[in-house]
Nucleic acid binder design. Structure first.
Length: 386
DNA sequence: TCTGGGGTCCTAGGACCC
DNA sequence: TCTGGGGTCCTAGGACCC
């Protein structure tokens, strides 16, 4: 009997936050809508029952675009962009505040809808997952003239189940591995389904820009570009030794494998958190001396928030650290390891305060964060033996 | 018009230990 | 003085992702 062909799906919700907002405000369908910024732009319910929405025009502040509808993307607005810049490109776009609770609700719903059909799921955040379809009944069967018809039908069924459970569309890539599926889910977006095998790598993957690979970010992308290697195929055409020479043993070898579409990572259905943190960017830059009272209040609140997160989720941690960002955007971190793992707000605040003393605070600050790492489950922490 | 917040993983040097 | 070799922990920074 033949070994089953490995089928991994990557499912990505289409413009997730924006699409959830459109369910709530269907009158915005087709309009440019941007999600992001603070809480000061809630829609206003007018006496005649209609709503008045905030527009992007005139936005002042440090927010960024979290998600934009496809109509807003047509104006050159995309996630990560500063809202001030987005306002120049699409002043008429509707601006909505982020409502993470609502998105988490829909996240649970779409994941449950997938799990009904295919239970081996790896969480990759609020709006995407990997699914191992290999052992799902029917996935190995042909259908009519289509040798991979079974797995294609399964992917369509998953899309339909997600849509009926949430009213939302998603895009799915189905391929032999996570790396290729992640790329494939983008190929047909929105509401897409792309099924690829090794035989399609040369025609469908190699023409894509290097940045399409998950793991090649702005820095590596620029370095590859400087070498004249623009597409994945360009990288795949380089001798392995040359990649090792330019990018080191580890990353170079990975680049070689990835460009050939090879990846044997498993779908991981459970993972434990490594760290938890809270951070905040101030509305204006603060100075350690002149704004001391305000900073102290924020610092303590961050410690309390992390402590609350840890306690709610049942974790304690030994590494307590801070993160500072200065007005020149330079970022520094300091951390220390404490003897007893803790989730206690005052213990965290105390250690974080010691970390802060190790930093030169002559520049003004734009961000402050508190982090607890080296986590373990609080329940596993037995009381000290006699 | 400067660039959010929450994460993971990797690297690298020094301390410390055997 | 003339100094191995590993292993692990701690700390800082950086790349990358959603």
């Amino acid at each position: 009997m033949n070994a089953p062909r490995r089928w991994i799906a990557h499912l990505d919700m289409d413009a997730f936050y924006a699409s959830v907002e459109l369910l709530r405000y269907p009158e915005l369908k087709g309009q440019p809508v941007v999600i992001g910024g603070g809480r000061r732009h809630q829609p206003e319910l007018l006496p005649d029952g209609t709503r008045r929405f905030a527009r992007l025009a005139g936005y002042a502040g440090r927010g960024v675009v979290t998600t934009a509808t496809y109509a807003a993307r047509d104006h050159g607005v995309h996630s990560g962009m500063g809202l001030m810049k987005a306002a120049v490109r699409a002043p008429e776009a509707v601006l909505l505040p982020t409502d993470f609770e609502q998105y988490r609700l829909y996240s649970r719903r779409f994941k449950a809808a997938v799990a009904e059909l295919a239970p081996v799921i790896e969480d990759r955040g609020i709006d995407e997952i990997y699914i191992d379809l290999t052992d799902v009944p029917g996935a190995q069967e042909p259908l009519g003239h289509d040798p991979h018809g079974g797995v294609r039908a399964l992917a369509l069924e998953i899309k339909n189940n997600v849509r009926s459970a949430t009213g939302l569309t998603c895009s799915i890539g189905v391929t032999p591995n996570k790396l290729l599926s992640k790329i494939a889910s983008e190929l047909d977006k929105p509401d897409g389904l792309a099924l690829l095998t090794e035989a399609d790598i040369a025609t469908r993957i190699w023409p894509l820009p290097v940045r399409s690979i998950n793991g090649i970010g702005p820095k590596a992308g620029a370095r590859l570009m400087a070498l004249g290697w623009k597409t994945i195929g360009d990288v795949a055409a380089q001798p392995r030794a040359l990649l090792l020479e330019h990018f080191g043993r580890s990353y170079g070898a990975w680049l070689h494998e990835a460009s050939h579409g090879r990846d044997d990572r498993l779908v991981v259905t459970h993972s434990e958190p490594v760290s938890m943190s809270r951070e905040t960017t101030f509305e204006r830059d603060l100075h350690a001396k002149r704004d001391r009272a305000e900073l102290t209040t924020i610092f303590t609140r961050l410690a309390e928030q992390v402590a609350g997160d840890l306690q709610r989720k049942g974790y304690v941690g030994r590494t307590i650290g801070i993160k500072l960002r200065f007005d020149d955007f330079k970022t520094v971190t300091r951390d220390m390891t404490v003897e007893t793992p803790t989730a206690d707000a005052s213990a965290i605040r105390l250690a974080a305060g010691l970390c802060l003393k190790r930093v030169d605070l002559s520049r003004r600050l734009r961000l402050l964060g508190v982090r607890v790492g080296t986590l373990q489950r609080a329940a596993l922490l037995s009381s000290a033996p006699p």
